[in-house]
């Protein structure tokens, strides 16, 4: 497949790719740490207050300050932090008292579950809608997709969330309310992956599984709607671009069926930029949608980082930022790889 020929070429390609990736990851993360770290130290919030509270006597306050290392020069604090972070030690969160890594392992699966479902909905509904809108340009379908997109993009998500709860949970009773699982089921399974849907399914707790499905349905649809609004708009514009190309005319002249022209040829080419759009939209959801998580009492990464930020819990904020940074870089890499699969020209 790879030009330049033979195993040696392939190996070299893979090697340079890997080295390049590690370099990109390292510099991105270092930059992120530096910026977040210094912002965290410059903000006019006293992190010691988060630990000891407003009432602590002076000596308790001073001791906590020293324990945090805040009495040392800024540069020294930074070096210490980076050294520890390299070994995977992000320190302890002030608010939860757990190691930041543990907290992230607890909150990230919740966000992952929601974001993945949301993106799947966004892709499987958004892409066909976008294609239809492009093919039937100007028709009622196009207008409808445009309207859907506009609403999804401009209505505040927490409002939609509350209205959704009011309608589907409170009035109609079709879905369960906020939270990931009813309290009744909370202790029926042991968390392994942290993704409730997978854990309950693997342990055969079908009642708990269906309860979790019912809990996740509404927030997932909401995020899905949000992401499909974006994905369908982008699909439409990429498709319009492709449909105007000469190869499409050529394919039609050859007598290929319209379905084949659109779904096999045009969409395949539109898929290249689309992959980036989807990856970025997924990354955005993985960052944790604070508002959705708040409305649905979803214990995810977004709520965790926001809450930490409000309390100047810098260890948690830094740790969370790094995880999100890594997710962005990884997804970029993934979309790069998909490019290679989809577009032979980029393999040079």
């Amino acid at each position: 497949m790879i030009r330049g020929g033979g195993h040696a070429g392939a190996l070299r390609f893979l090697l340079t790719k890997t080295v390049k990736f590690i370099l990109v990851l390292a510099t991105t993360l270092l930059g992120l740490i530096a910026v977040t770290f210094f912002i965290g130290r410059v903000v006019p919030i006293d992190p010691v207050l988060a630990i000891v509270g407003d009432r602590a006597p002076p000596h308790v306050y001073e001791r906590a300050r020293q324990e945090l290392g805040l009495d040392r020069p800024l540069a020294e604090q930074f070096v210490i932090y980076v050294k520890k972070a390299v070994t995977g030690d992000f320190g302890n969160s002030v608010l939860t008292t757990n190691p930041v890594m543990t907290d992230i392992m607890n909150t990230f699966p919740a966000t992952l579950e929601l974001a993945t479902l949301g993106t799947l909905i966004g892709v499987f509904v958004g892409v066909p809608l976008g294609v239809l809108a492009a093919v039937r340009r100007g028709s009622w379908i196009d207008q409808l997709v445009r309207l859907l997109g506009l609403v999804g993009y401009s209505v505040p998500i927490f409002w939609l969330g509350l209205m959704g709860l009011l309608l589907f949970y409170a009035k109609l009773g079709w879905v369960e309310g906020p939270g990931r699982l009813d309290v009744t089921y909370s202790y029926l399974y042991t968390p392994v992956t942290g993704v409730v849907l997978i854990d309950t399914l693997m342990q055969g707790q079908m009642d708990a599984f269906w309860n979790a499905v019912s809990h996740v349905a509404l927030p997932a649809c909401l995020l899905g709607y949000f992401s499909l609004a974006y994905i369908s708009r982008m699909t439409r514009s990429f498709m319009l671009n492709e449909l105007a190309q000469e190869y499409v005319i050529a394919a039609r002249v050859k007598g290929l069926s319209e379905i084949r022209v659109i779904w096999r040829h045009a969409l395949r080419n539109a898929a290249v930029p689309l992959v980036t759009v989807i990856a970025l939209s997924y990354a955005n959801l993985l960052e944790g949608s604070v508002l959705t998580e708040t409305v649905f009492a979803w214990p995810g990464l977004g709520q965790y980082i926001t809450n930490s930020l409000q309390n100047a819990d810098m260890n948690a904020v830094l740790g969370g930022t790094l995880i999100i940074g890594t997710v962005f870089v990884l997804l970029n890499l993934l979309s790069d790889l998909l490019y290679h699969l989809l577009d032979p020209r980029t393999r040079r």
Partner: peptide, 14 residues
């Protein structure tokens, strides 16, 4: 059981 529900409108619905 004390459940952490930050949004007050959500508390009301529940």
């Amino acid at each position: 059981i004390y459940r952490h529900i930050k949004e007050t409108a959500t508390q009301r619905l529940l």
